[in-house]
Amino acid sequence: MTGPANLENAAVAPRVEAARAAPEDNTLNRATSLDRFLAGVERRAFRIAQLALRDREEALDVVQGAMLRLARSYVDRPGEEWPPLFFRILYNGIRDARRRRSVRSRLFGFLPGRFPGDEDEPGDPLERVAGGGPDPARQSMADQAMQRLETALGDLPERQQQTFVLRCLEGMDVAETAAVMGCSEGSVKTHYFRALHALRAKLDEVW
């Protein structure tokens, strides 16, 4: 009687152990997946926030906020849902930052001093040259072209800018872009068409 019971217990024991270990393993796997996802998206997210806000510190804050929010509230969602969720959170953060900036400028606009978004610091050019990067002349031309793109994007209405960034720069399809922006696919197509038309008019001659 004890023989079969022991055999049964021996067969069940590993499964019980696995079930006990499962939550921790699962958490570890989620942490690894999240780390990989955020590592793959963080720099692009930062540049998107920087394009929208024209301020490095604010952009870093917004990206960090989006990472924390995703980790805290949506980590249990399937991994394929993370990109649209993350970018939606990111754009909500950008919108909040703009609102805060607007309130600040209304309250303290009469005071002298620099406010975020007045101008963006491009960084130390010597540091970039010394960093062993690409040819300085080519880098300088690319920087100028990027500067023109940023200026042209900055002149677009918010929704058009958002659509262009997500569709063209991030390479999202229409459905993903619509999910991030919380609008219909038709609206995405309209905004994108107008954005592209406006950017071509401004940039095609200078590029």
Binding site: R43, L60, L68, Q139, M146
Partner: peptide, 28 residues
Amino acid sequence: ARELFDASVEGLDAETRSRLHRARQSAL
């Protein structure tokens, strides 16, 4: 536009990369 954007992402300075890395660790 995408080429320039990708290049600007790749060309991020070390300090910004480091801060993004720290932000990610905090999130984890």
